[in-house]
Amino acid sequence: MRALLVVNPAATTTSARTRDVLIHALASEMKLDAVTTEYRGHGRDLARRAAEAGDVDLVVALGGDGTVNEVVNGLLHAGPDPDRLPRLAVVPGGSTNVFARALGLPNDAVEATGVILDALREERSRTVGLGLAAGTPGTEDEAVPARWFTFCAGLGFDAGVIGRVEQQRERGKRSTHALYLRQVVRQLLVDPHRRHGTITLERPGHDPVRELVLSIVCNTSPWTYLGNKPVYASPEASFDKGLDVLGLSRLSGPAVARYGTQLLTSSPERGPRGRHAVSLHDLIDFTLHSKVPLPFQMDGDHLGLRTSVTFTGVRRALGVIV
């Protein structure tokens, strides 16, 4: 078996020594080319070349969810074809590692590598569905290229929080749960649309859902983790189905307290609910429009402002080693 290992040297939870140990462990079982990423988007470029080469059987992403997203977009540059494309394996090295943990992998890089090696020996894999987001034709965002996401996307409030966190990390702050909570509070203080939303969700054959403040699109469940605690925005979301959406139409002080508490106490059986909450399950095609440009994120990566994004849930998009 020939494999490509894409290594993010800035992965927050692995040291250079740990990465060397993992590389040697993988190389003992396969013909391995290990490449360290050098710029944003390098993982995508490496995975794309591996997919186009036709002689790579496996691409391993060692890093956080951002690294995984780049690798997935490189593998699927020409579209999904799980029977032809290299399979994906993920060694978690980020602060949260939602995709890897949603697959059932340990949140420790060494333990996860052991699971992956066992899965390869036993020929264990699965095919997962993914989300695809693109600028909506006929709008000012139509030129925005399509991009795949593995576990979530968001337009509005939550994406604004992620943008604030990224700004703080660029200033040298560590990615901690306390940092996220502080940015949630700051976003609440400055968000002009938190009481009267500007987002409309449109889908074929249904009435529009209007005046949403935020819209969280989930491709799996949990939505995220606080340490070892899973948080469920859309408990029914699954890699085997379409996309789920949680929308909130108000984020006043009491609403924030209510829905924040519901998220913190959420479970696989129960997510946020209430008269300002909208939950939609197993969607294949829908569009989010906003009256004003709003922050947009995919897999925890802030992508700037958008006014209209079209989403597609694609089942059986990529083979993954588990």
Rank of each mutant, 00 (worst) to 15 (best):
A25H: 12
L46G: 06
V21F: 08
L22R: 11
T96D: 04
N97L: 01
D108Y: 03
V144T: 13
T37I: 00
S95V: 05
P137F: 08
T113K: 12
N107P: 05
L75P: 09
V68C: 14
A27Q: 12
A61P: 11
L105K: 09
I23W: 10
R126V: 14
V72L: 12
P145D: 15
E123T: 04
A50T: 10
G93H: 10
D45E: 14
L22I: 15
A134K: 14
A61N: 08
T36A: 08
G131V: 11
R124I: 10
E122S: 05
A134R: 15
L103G: 03
T36K: 04
N69L: 01
L22W: 11
L58P: 00
V71C: 05
E111W: 00
H42Y: 07
N107C: 08
G41V: 03
T96F: 04
D45N: 04
A53C: 04
H24W: 05
R84Q: 02
G104W: 08
R124D: 12
L22M: 13
R40P: 09
L58V: 01
R101S: 06
A47F: 03
A11G: 13
E142N: 11
E142A: 15
D65R: 12
N97D: 14
R17C: 02
T127I: 13
S125R: 08
F99V: 08
E111N: 03
G74T: 03
V115L: 06
Y39C: 03
